[in-house]
């Protein structure tokens, strides 16, 4: 527990200090935190740790004792993702330490219809955030004191952010009686579709040359 650091005790100071290790060998505070919690880190751009639904409350309790706050709860439906994922749904808990500024995402995988323990007993801020995930994504949180719809109207059936919920775009009616259906004219592509040309753009490769500022061509704009 000591390595977690308390509110008053900042264990991992970033930069400075007499016992400073070389920059390469300096332990990543969040990675160490994940190790201390006994979790498996996920290979992702943001520090993410995998948690099972059973461990969630215990892990959250430890983080809360260490002074972390719950910033956000993100529900994701991976039902239409290009790569296979362990389960269809995932709930991410965005926790943050307000004094030593460590951020960690806790990821829980769950099937459709599975429920998660509510973190309301741990963090009061989970109240609205979990209600929102329940409303928009349909993940049920057990023991939540007030699990009602929060954003969508009461008569809306379904959970809008699920991938099988249509966006329900209204076609545009023109004077001459034609309808334009927005998806027909949408050029943007999801990861599933290859598109007409298969052009994927590319990331930056090699060095970057300095771009010259735009120059007005001789004799003004043509």
């Amino acid at each position: 527990m000591d390595a977690l650091g308390g509110k008053d005790q900042v264990v991992f100071t970033v930069g400075g200090g007499a016992t400073e290790t070389p920059a390469m060998a300096r332990p990543d505070p969040v990675a160490q935190l994940v190790q201390t919690l006994g979790l498996k880190a996920e290979d992702a751009a943001e520090p993410t740790a995998l948690v099972t639904a059973g461990d969630l409350e215990a892990v959250a309790g430890k983080l809360k004792t260490a002074g972390f706050m719950l910033m956000d709860v993100v529900g994701v439906d991976y039902g239409a993702y290009v790569q296979p994922r362990p389960q269809r749904f995932s709930v991410l808990y965005n926790v943050y330490h307000p004094y030593d500024h460590r951020r960690l995402f806790l990821r829980v995988w769950l099937r459709d219809g599975e429920s998660l323990p509510s973190l309301f007993p741990v963090w009061k801020s989970a109240n609205y955030l979990e209600r929102e995930v329940y409303d928009l994504m349909g993940v049920v949180f057990d023991n939540h004191p007030d699990l009602r719809k929060i954003l969508t109207p009461d008569d809306l059936e379904g959970h809008p952010l699920r991938k099988d919920f249509p966006i329900e775009e209204t076609p545009t009616l023109f004077r001459d009686g034609r309808f334009i259906d927005p998806p027909t004219f949408r050029a943007g592509m999801t990861g599933q579709s290859a598109g007409l040309t298969g052009w994927r753009g590319s990331l930056r490769k090699g060095g970057t040359r300095e771009m010259e500022p735009p120059v007005m061509p001789e004799g003004g704009p043509k």
Binding site: V74, V76, V82, M189, T190, G191
Partner: peptide, 12 residues
């Protein structure tokens, strides 16, 4: 997800 539209955007 590799497409030209985001797969999911969650606003904090």
């Amino acid at each position: 997800d590799g497409g030209s539209m985001p797969y999911r955007v969650k606003i904090r």
